[in-house]
Amino acid sequence: MKAIWSKTCLAVVASAAIGMSASAQAADDCPLPGNLRVVIGSTSTGGDTYQNSSIVVDQLADKLDINAKVDAVGVMPGFQALERSRHGNTVMIFHDGAYLGNLYGVNGYPDIFDKFIVGPTIAINPGNAYLVPKDSPYQSMSDIIEAAGDGKQIKVAIQPGSVSEIGFSALKNAVRMKYPGKEGNIVAVNTGSQADKNQLLFDGAVDVINGSVQANEQYTQLPADDQKAMRFVWITAREQTIAETDEAGMGDTTREQLLQYVTPNVSVPMTADQDFTFDKEFFFLYNKDMDPAAIQCIDDALAEIYDEGEIQQQQKRSFFVPDFKPSQEAASYLKEKNDQYKTIINDLKG
């Protein structure tokens, strides 16, 4: 009995004290908590999602004068935390994988456009790329499409059900359009980390791997007789996106050189008159019940931050392309993107 009493007393006292400090912290017209938790859809603190989120969240916290912390909890725990947080104490930052998982029918991925509120986009990672061994017979994506049409089997190492697979699906779709019935020659080798994908290439177990400019650029600089040497064949970003990166490019590869691997120089057709492109975009996700004023508040703060122009420098230094769109615009834009890829994925299923 005594214990229960002391418990209650303490809780009451503590809550009173904390309630006061919390309300004092919150800004006047901004119904955001003094301690904002930002979960991300990745468990890695060395990856692009974390890096990009921490750049944006640090700036945001400064601007709103709150504490904000990025927690690398991963996809499912991230969605769960977001779902539980009705009052906007937790928000999420993730990339196109959020809806691609649903499109690929991966277990546990909800329809984010239905279940959550899609918030502002913040940046693009333009680095999503496909690579072949340096001594590969395939000089370009057209070579690969032709070879598949010719009956050659082409193995591609990807991580299934996400950003890594979408380019693969586009390739398969391109083969289907040009050589109907031959798309089965493009075979996915499902694997995990970049290390595993690279390893499959070193083993000669696959012909093409999904990778990134950031992680694989140095491998493209190795001499051809090195077992580890690779060559870019395709960067999925839009031409305009790559054009916005720093002129120096990444490592020893200049922007000029990177532009050789994007459409229209490399063509993977999506429809008769349009090439497939994919920009890996990062955006906020909110709980369905989040206060619209809080959403507006984050939008406004981000708009100010992007107006100041410093964040762009910081993002570019880390090979991100700044890409701020306020919530509403971002939501309809991403929905459109979602529908576009949905067509490709469904066409391949049928």
């Binding site: 503590a14 809550s15 904390i18 919390a22 908590p33 301690n35 904002l36 938790r37 504490n67 912390k69 539980r84 947080s85 009052h87 104490n89 937790t90």
Partner: peptide
């Protein structure tokens, strides 16, 4: 859930 993100 009463004191989110504070550790209280």
């Amino acid at each position: 859930d009463v004191f989110p993100n504070t550790g209280y």
